[in-house]
């Protein structure tokens, strides 16, 4: 008999109330082993509360959390999770090596195993040459790397990262995601909260969007695009000569209520096609019929920003 392994994380109807304020309102989703999930939402949406609930740092008001089938309060679960808080939760007056050693011990590592993991972590973070320097003297990106390393020394199967790249320059951000990709390649499930749309889009297998404590979407990027933006695409066409008058879009469906595109004197037109598969050919024919040639054509891919805008009706707020 084949027994399927439990998901890395299974959350069902999770609620959390702080006094009269509801931080989480019935959040449910799963994270499979080895999967990368971005938990996306604006500030104050409930992302940190969710992470803290998973790490057993706060008790939910309702619902359930299972980590590899176990309760977060189970002491064995602590070894399965690597928790990396949003703040730099390190001892600034200790060296990088001393910090790693301390957290390794708190996770129960000792002896040769601890030494091996220390060496691995210093190599993994690219800070082996600065292992004996005080953390308080490190740059923001370096501190972030050590911050993450302290949470994964014990090789957890699920890593919880609360906005791991806040305040980090693009180069360090790239370095951090490179580190996380290595862990993910080794089969570690990763849940990261972020309000960086590009990060969520490019660094995750699946995205859960939360707003005002309520889950508004759950799926892969393609699924979210399909569910929200669908096949509509923004199309930009450069013409061989300036328009003498706007082109009328007869027999075509557009997402915009415009029936004519372009302006006299301009050499390009922009429009959103409801179904790019069906309407793109018609648009090209229409342009030709009006006496113009297509010099260049650009179909803009939908981004998570469009998805988010569609889901929440607003830009991602800070």
């Amino acid at each position: 008999m084949i027994q399927s392994s439990p998901p890395a994380l299974e959350i069902d109807q999770l609620t959390k109330r702080f006094g009269t304020r509801e931080a989480l309102r019935g959040v449910s989703f799963r994270l499979e082993a080895g999967e990368r999930l971005a938990f996306l939402g604006p500030n104050g949406a409930g992302k940190t509360t969710l992470i803290r609930s998973i790490a057993a740092r706060t008790s939910p008001s309702g619902g359930s959390i299972k980590i590899f089938g176990q309760s977060p309060d189970d002491s064995r679960t602590h070894q399965l999770i690597g928790f990396v808080p949003q703040e730099i939760a390190l001892y600034g007056d200790l060296t990088a090596r001393q910090n790693l050693k301390a957290f390794g011990r708190f996770y129960g590592l000792k002896g040769t195993l601890l030494r091996q993991r220390l060496s691995w972590a210093l190599e993994w973070t690219g800070l082996a040459d600065r292992a004996n320097e005080l953390v308080r003297n490190f740059s923001g990106g370096m501190k972030r790397r050590i911050n993450i390393a302290c949470g994964v020394l014990h090789r957890p199967q699920l890593i919880l990262l609360d906005e791991p790249t806040v305040g980090v320059d693009p180069q360090s951000r790239e370095h951090i995601f490179g580190m996380l990709d290595k862990l993910n390649d080794a089969g570690t499930a990763i849940l990261l909260t972020t309000h960086n749309l590009d990060e969520a889009q490019s660094r995750s297998d699946r995205i859960v969007v939360i707003d005002h404590g309520r889950m508004v979407a759950d799926g892969t990027f393609s699924e979210l695009v399909q569910e929200t933006v669908g096949n509509s695409r923004l199309v930009k066409v450069r013409l061989d000569k300036p328009l003498t008058r706007p082109i009328e879009l007869t027999g075509m469906r557009t997402t915009l209520e415009e029936r004519v595109v372009g302006q006299s004197g301009e050499q390009s037109i922009h429009t959103r096609l409801s179904d790019v598969n069906e309407d793109l050919g018609r648009l090209v024919q229409l342009i030709k019929r009006n006496g113009y040639q297509v010099a260049d054509l650009e179909i803009r891919s939908p981004s998570l920003r469009h998805v988010f805008l569609h889901l929440t009706g607003q830009e991602l707020r800070d």
Partner: peptide
Amino acid sequence: ENTTLERLLSTKL
């Protein structure tokens, strides 16, 4: 205040 305590308590400590 700097959440180190929170992190420590998420370990075996």
